[in-house]
Design a protein around this nucleic acid. Structure first.
Lengths: 213, 213
DNA sequence: CTAGTATAAATAACTATCTGGTTATTTCAA
DNA sequence: TTGAAATAACCAGATAGTTATTTATACTAG
């Protein structure tokens, strides 16, 4: 009884499922997302999702692998290696901030994954190389800054990366409770600009020698 | 056909529901939590939850109001007003860190509330006074530090509070993806101690004048 | 002090709908 | 003509919320 089947196009079908899944997972979390909603939003039969991805959890895993990879690739494209260390650091903070703002779904997906104790990423092997070069890039930057006399010695790359991510990420992911707790609009243009400047200053004060900033 | 009803004790019944709800919401989020699981864990009939709290969302609202209030009360009990500004700041960072570690459910509940754009807290009026005094306390501390010559001028209390919360909160809520991304154990005793020290340094460098730390 | 009674607390059983996943079938394109 | 791609219809178990009923306790009248 199947009528008017969509012109066959497996790549497009898969892509539409992934996009719809990303949006629904980002909006409701893994637990709140509904397979029926995903298939409706994708404009495909639910059966096709099971055909291409297996089940809801496997779909979630692909989505989060995708989003992580996309983020790291964009970050690598910055080529901070070639720039003055202080400028590179500023640029990295601003990039992270802008990326989170441009891709709010990345943040909610990562939150959801952490609620599930990263069980999907643990089962994945895609990200290991990507992340290693990511940490290595920061180590190299710190070393360059130390050599040039601009950075203090002994700053740990991982701690710094967590803090760099954290000051940006936390402001955005907790913006809704934040507006209530602090009694202030947090996402106006002015508020966002102010926050980015504050975050850059936080990171520079942590890394730079006195008088360099 | 009702047999062996529990000895009547509405306060205890309500308390047991709240505790079970807090645990289940913290573990699965609002979307993933199941009313049946809550009632089973509380050892009560599901009907009683609906009797005392109305529905799942109203129950969630009460839970999160509770947890927020508890946190602010603990923080107020620190009495940072009376201490040396630098010591007070250190103590506040350490308190926040310790509280988050001791109450991981607080973090996941706040995350869940943010996923839902703080719609439950918006509908609540309980927290306004609590939060105002919270921000005021930081303003007073900054002013004292400026007066004593230990702190820089012009540091914004709200930005500082968000960063203080953020560097602690983010490390913990993202610990699971963090261990994968950074390829390092993050929750051993040594790792936790190292992170607390790093966070204290981050905040002090942001606030203190040169040479004070 | 006691028997009766009103009422809130608690229980049991139920339901309409939702949900992730499946079976059976058709259709397009190489 | 054949195999992958797409569709339609279905299902068992779960899920939030309800209805109907029973029972413990506080209170009251005698």
């Amino acid at each position: 009884m199947a009528r008017k089947p969509q012109t066959r196009n497996p790549e497009q079908t898969k892509a539409r499922i992934l996009k719809a899944a990303r949006d629904e997972f980002a909006l409701k979390g893994l637990g709140g997302a509904r397979v029926d909603v995903i298939s409706r939003r994708a404009g495909i039969q639910k059966r096709m999702m099971y055909h291409y991805f297996g089940n809801k959890e496997a779909l979630f895993q692909i989505v989060i692998e995708h989003e992580y990879t996309r983020f790291r690739e964009a970050e690598a494209a910055l080529e901070i290696e070639r720039q003055d260390p202080v400028e590179a650091l500023k640029k990295l903070v601003a990039f992270t901030w802008d990326y989170y703002i441009a891709h709010p779904e990345f943040i909610t997906l990562v939150n959801s994954e952490n609620l599930h104790k990263a069980r999907h990423l643990k089962a994945s092997s895609v990200l290991r190389p990507v992340n290693e070069t990511f940490v290595d890039r920061m180590r190299a930057l710190l070393k360059r800054g130390e050599a040039s006399g601009q950075f203090r010695k002994g700053v740990d790359a991982v701690q710094l990366l967590i803090t760099l991510s954290g000051v940006n990420y936390h402001y955005l992911t907790n913006q809704f409770t934040g507006e209530i707790v602090y009694g202030r609009k947090l996402m106006t243009k002015a508020a966002r600009d102010e926050r980015l400047a504050f975050n850059i200053e936080t990171i520079l004060r942590l890394v730079c020698k006195e008088g360099v900033m």
